[in-house]
């Protein structure tokens, strides 16, 4: 499709040249920055124990399955 501007951040808007670039920059300042700080906040939260426990459980399962696989019968 050629009806999209190829601005550096891949930002959209039907081609309107400079004015759409200007809007894009403005939207990025208004929205992009806000979204990113929201995400930074979320990413900084500790992962809850129930998820860590699940992962530890999966890891342990993995480990025991692997040990079993690593010793097919004997040598």
């Amino acid at each position: 499709m050629t009806d999209f501007d190829k601005t550096k951040d891949g930002a959209v808007a039907p081609s309107k040249g400079a004015s759409s670039d200007r809007l894009d920059a403005k939207l990025d300042a208004l929205i992009g920055a806000k979204l990113r700080s929201y995400y930074d906040e979320l990413m900084a939260e500790p992962v809850p124990n129930r998820i860590l426990d699940l992962l530890a459980e999966l890891d342990a399962k993995e480990r025991s399955e692997q040990e079993r696989d690593d010793e097919p019968g004997h040598r």
Binding site: M43, L52, Q66
Partner: peptide
């Protein structure tokens, strides 16, 4: 597979 579970952990946040 250990790498796989590690990747799960890293992706969690």
């Amino acid at each position: 597979n250990r790498d796989f579970t590690r990747a799960l952990l890293e992706s969690a946040p």
